[in-house]
Design a protein around this nucleic acid. Structure first.
Lengths: 340, 340
DNA sequence: TTGTAAGCGTTATCAC
DNA sequence: GTGATAACGCTTACAA
C-alpha cells in the first residue's frame, strides 16, 4: 500500500521515507536539513543517520515550489569572444555557490532567441537575472523586464541608467580619468581611443570621459574609432585599417582601448601587420586585466576591476530583502606593465 | 474565497486562472502550451488569448516536479584559464537551448567544493550532468556517480574509460596520428611534446599516441614535458625552463602541444623570452583551434574539433530514452596555418 | 478532444 | 521542540 503510493516513478526517497525510518515526522526531517533550525540535536542526529542510510537529499524543486524562492539566478551572457567573460563566470559562480545560489547560464548571443531564452529562465522562477553581456540594448532589457518574475535585474560590470535595474560596476569615469592622467604623465602626445560598439549610451562613457579629460588637459581632441564587437580580431582589422592609412608622423603614439580584448587585437596588428614595436612605436593600454594581459607576450598596462568584491556584493544584494537603491560603483586600479 | 486560496504568495497567475478565464479546464490550458498536443485549434486559441491577457506562463518547477523530467542539465567545469572553454560553453548552451534544455553552470574549480556542488545540482534533479573540465579525476567522477540522480553522465570533448559515463569526443588517436604525419611530412626532426596534467590516464592519450607514431616512423623517441594545468602562463614557464637549458643545436625544431592554450603560451615564450622565431627557429602546433589561433599574432596550426556536431549529438543523446552505448568519437581536421 | 482526480516532495501555518 | 494539514502549480492516468 505504501509501495503503491510511489509506484508512478522509480521509487524516490522522500522526506516521508526518512521520517518513517527515523521515527519522526516529515517536518522534523526537513528541519534537520536547515541550518538555523529549532530542532534538538538528538532528533537531527536520528534523521541524518536515517537519511544517510536511505540516500536521501531534499528535492530543491519541491522546496522552491513550496517556498517561492528558488535560490537560482539566471546569468545572461551574449559575449563569448572576450576571455574576460570566463573570469567573470568563475568569480560569479564561485561567490554564488558559496552562499547556496545556483546559476542558470543563458546564452543570449542569438538575438532572435534572446527574448524566448529570458522568458524561459523566468519560467524556472529564478530569483534574479544577472546580465554580464554587452549588447544588452533596450530590446533585451525590455524582454527581461517584461518577463517580470525576476525580483531583481542586475547589470554586472557595466553601468546602466535604467532605473529598474541594479548596476554593480567599476566607476568608469574615475577609472578613465586615471588612465588619461597616466597617458599624459607618461608624455604621450597623440592618443587614439579604440572603442567598442557605440550603439548604446552606456558603452560610450569611457570614450567620452577620455576625450573630455584629454581636451581639458591639452586642448586637443583625440581621435577615436570603434568596432562592432569586443572581439580581438575585429579590433585588429580596425586598427590596421586606421593605422596603415596614416603616414608615420601622423600615427598615434598610444592607443587607449576600451578593454583588453580590443587591446590585444591591436597589439597583434601593430606588431605583425605593421611591423612596429609596442610600446616604442605605439603604446597600448587596455581595461579589465584579463589573464593574458600579464603574459610575456603582451605585458599589457590595464585597469583591473575588483571582480571578487563586486561578486560578493552581488550576493549580498541577492540576499537582501530591503527595497533600496542597490546600485554601486567600485574602484579598481591601474596595473602598469610594459605596453604603455 | 478564490482570493483566499492564493493569498499565501503574491498572487501568481496559474493554469487554473487561465482555465477560468478561457472557460476550459486546466488540462486544456496545459495542453495548449505543448507542442504536440491533441487539442483543437479553437481551444488553443481561446487559451492563448486568455493567457496573454493574464500574463500566464507555465511554471517549469511544478512541471518538473510532476513529470520527473527537468529539462535541465548541469554543466560541470573546472577550467577557466583556457579560452576554448568559452567556445564550448557557447556551442553547448546554444544547442541545448534550441531543444528546450536549460543549463546549470557548476563551477568545480575549488576541489573542496566539487562534491557538494555536484550533490547540489543533483538536488535540482537535473536530467544529466555534462563534464567539460579537465581535472575530472576519480574523486569528482565518483562524487558525480554517487549523487546518482543523474540519469546520464556525459564527458564532453574528452575520452573516458569509465563504463558508467558517456563520452562524446574527437578521436584522439586518429587526430594525433594525423598531427604526427604532418610533422613528419614537413620535415621536422626533433619534436618536443608538451602535455597537460599527466595525473590521469585519459590525459595521456595524445602524448602516448604521438610518441608511438613517431617511434614507429623514425625509430626515435621524442622528448616530452608536461604542465600541471592547461594554462598558457604555466606552459610559457615550462617551455622556457626546458628550452633555455638546451644548447641551440639540441633544441627541438617543433613543439607539439596538447592543446592551443599550451601552444599559445609556448609561442609567447619562444618569441619574447628566448628571442626566437616561430616557425623558423621552432615551430609550434596546437589542438582545439581557439579563436585566437587565427589571429595574425599566432597563425597557429592546430586541430579543430567539430564542436557543433558534437553538441548536437549530445542533445540527441539527452533526448534518447534507449539504453544503449552512446559513446561516440568524431573526426576533426587539421587546420594548417603558419606556426608549423 | 476534453474533464476529473490523484499525485509529485517540499514549505507554511497553526496547533500542541 | 514537534506534528498534522493545507497549499505550491503542474502532469498523468483514466473516464467521459
Amino acid at each position: 500500500m505504501d509501495d503503491e503510493k510511489k509506484s508512478r516513478h522509480s521509487a524516490n526517497v522522500t522526506a516521508d521515507d526518512v521520517a518513517l525510518a527515523a521515527g519522526v515526522s516529515r517536518w522534523t526531517v526537513n528541519r534537520a536539513f536547515k541550518k538555523a533550525a529549532s530542532i534538538s540535536p538528538k532528533s537531527r542526529e536520528k534523521v541524518m543517520t536515517a537519511a544517510e542510510a536511505l540516500g536521501y537529499v531534499p528535492d530543491l524543486r519541491a522546496a522552491s515550489l513550496a517556498s517561492d524562492r528558488s535560490n537560482l539566478v539566471a546569468l545572461l551572457i551574449d559575449d563569448f569572444a572576450n576571455p574576460h567573460k570566463l573570469v567573470m563566470l568563475e568569480r560569479l559562480t564561485r561567490a554564488l555557490r558559496r552562499k547556496g545560489w545556483d546559476t542558470l547560464l543563458v546564452n543570449t548571443l542569438d538575438r532572435e532567441d534572446a527574448a524566448p531564452a529570458i522568458l524561459n529562465a523566468s519560467q524556472r522562477r529564478v530569483d534574479a537575472a544577472i546580465l554580464i553581456g554587452i549588447q544588452f540594448d533596450d530590446d533585451v532589457l525590455e524582454a527581461a523586464l517584461r518577463a517580470r518574475r525576476f525580483k531583481k535585474l542586475i547589470i554586472f560590470a557595466r553601468t546602466s541608467e535604467n532605473p529598474d535595474t541594479i548596476s554593480i560596476s567599476v566607476d568608469d569615469i574615475k577609472a578613465t580619468q586615471e588612465i588619461a592622467a597616466y597617458v599624459l604623465a607618461r608624455g604621450y602626445k597623440r592618443p587614439l581611443f579604440l572603442a567598442g560598439p557605440r550603439t548604446y549610451s552606456a558603452h560610450l562613457l569611457r570614450l567620452e570621459t577620455f576625450v573630455d579629460s584629454w581636451q581639458r588637459a591639452t586642448g586637443d581632441t583625440p581621435e577615436n574609432i570603434s568596432v562592432a564587437e569586443y572581439d580581438p580580431i575585429l579590433a585588429a582589422d580596425a586598427a590596421y585599417k586606421t593605422l596603415s592609412a596614416l603616414p608615420p608622423q601622423a600615427r598615434p603614439d598610444i592607443i587607449v582601448c576600451e578593454n583588453d580584448a580590443l587591446a590585444i587585437g591591436t597589439i597583434d596588428t601593430i606588431r605583425h601587420r605593421l611591423g612596429l614595436r609596442v610600446p616604442q612605436d605605439i603604446a597600448v593600454i587596455g581595461f579589465d586585466d584579463v589573464p593574458q594581459a600579464e603574459s610575456p607576450n603582451y605585458r599589457l598596462t590595464t585597469y583591473r576591476q575588483p571582480l571578487t568584491d563586486m561578486a560578493n556584493y552581488l550576493v549580498d544584494v541577492l540576499e537582501s530583502a530591503e527595497d533600496i537603491d542597490f546600485d554601486r560603483t567600485f574602484t579598481g586600479r591601474l596595473v602598469t606593465r610594459e605596453s604603455a
